[in-house]
Amino acid sequence: MSSSVIERLDRESKNIENVKIVLEIEPPKLNSHQLKENIIKSHLEIIVLSMLAEISISGYDLIKEIFARYNVFLSQGTVYSLLYCLKDEGIIRAEFAKGDMRTKRYSATQEGKQIIEKRIDEFIEAEEYILNSIKNRRSIF
């Protein structure tokens, strides 16, 4: 990915008009960008699912939105593959945007919303357990 493309994405991501997402929580200032990138990539499915439960969005805008939220740029090859798999599993559906037959917007199906809610609950529970065990261990020292 060339620096000009990243700069363009950066500019565009600050001015996304068709994505109505309000970040209520300031993203944590991680020392290591690499660490953040690894976390995002290893939990990409749950991150994407949580976004698609709220909004209808194209693959391209999803990449921009993740960049805006986390400052992590993901490859189209990864993101579109994930969207196609989730669609095949019936969790999300694709519809053409109004008046634009070139852009497919993805959103959760009715059944998918329940699956997503369950997966998010399980994810939070597992993450909290791991984080708490790390915090407790740290308090010993």
């Binding site: 990915m1 493309v5 490859s75 189209q76 090859g77 990864t78 579109y80 593959s81």
Partner: peptide, 28 residues
């Protein structure tokens, strides 16, 4: 099946690094 159509039409005139996209897709 992975088709590149959505990516190509949504990316519009932006340059696609087709080799990287393809390798990332396979890795996924």
């Amino acid at each position: 099946i992975f088709d590149y159509e959505d990516m190509r039409s949504e990316s519009k005139n932006e340059e696609l690094d087709i080799v990287k996209v393809t390798e990332d897709m396979i890795d996924f």
